[in-house]
């Protein structure tokens, strides 16, 4: 029961969705539209799970006075402040918009900006031209980067065109092949879920 019921629900829901997509009958269209909305509502309802886990980890660090527990206090205070402000005046509120513009936006932009230094240094270590594969990867990356800045045009007028060709032709071919392969994988997994063969997402058996 504890294991079979969720498997049956998964298969039935997947089958209903697939059948509804192939039948242009009002009742099925309404059901499919409801399932689409349900998917978003159920996903949104689970969002607190991450916050609860974050709270459990950091509250435990504070209780046990682990090294650096002060940072856990700061994290939980920032979390509580954002939640209270957001629930009180919604994300459209003036103060919340300021929190987004002057705290979250600068922090996330800077966090991703400093990553460019680390991915560049990691790339130097990883992609040193030790093989044809690494040379192709590094060469393409350099040409694409130089091609989109004015310096590339100054160095050689062909850089922007070469960069665009790499993006339009071999890049499209590679990404398209990967996309087709990944979709085939998703279809195969979907069929396994529909038939109740795929159960790994339910975790270990009790």
């Amino acid at each position: 029961m504890k294991r079979e019921l969720p498997v049956v629900i998964t298969s039935v829901v997947a089958a209903l969705y697939v059948v509804a997509s192939f039948l242009d009958i009002k009742a099925f269209n309404v059901m499919k539209s409801h399932l689409d909305k349900w998917f978003l509502i159920i996903s949104a309802s689970t969002i607190l799970l991450g916050v609860i886990n974050l709270y459990v980890v950091h509250a435990s660090a504070i209780r046990r006075r682990k090294p650096g527990f002060v940072y856990s206090i700061i994290l939980l205070a920032a979390l509580a402040f954002t939640l209270i402000l957001g629930l009180q005046e919604t994300s459209q509120g003036r103060n919340y918009a300021q929190l987004y513009q002057y705290v979250l936006n600068p922090l996330s932009s800077t966090m991703y900006a400093i990553l460019c230094f680390y991915i560049a240094s990691a790339a130097y270590r990883a992609f040193r031209m030790r093989s044809v594969d690494a040379a192709l990867l590094l060469g393409t990356a350099v040409i694409v980067m130089i091609g989109v800045v004015p310096l590339g045009d100054v160095l050689w007028q062909g850089f922007p065109k070469l960069s665009q060709w790499l993006l339009d032709v071999p890049n499209t071919a590679g990404m398209r092949g990967i996309m087709i392969g990944a979709t085939l994988g998703a279809i195969a997994t979907g069929i396994r879920i529909l038939l109740g063969l795929e159960r790994s997402h339910f975790g270990r058996a009790e």
Binding site: L5, P6, I9, S11, Y17, F22, L35, T189, I193
Partner: peptide
């Protein structure tokens, strides 16, 4: 809690088997 996961995975599988086929497979071919 597995019932929640069952619904999400079921609808996700349904989407993969219907809506993803055209844009990510047929249109690409």
């Amino acid at each position: 809690s597995r019932i929640t996961i069952a619904f999400l995975v079921g609808i996700g599988a349904g989407i993969a088997l219907t809506r993803q086929i055209k844009p990510f497979f047929l249109d690409q071919i």
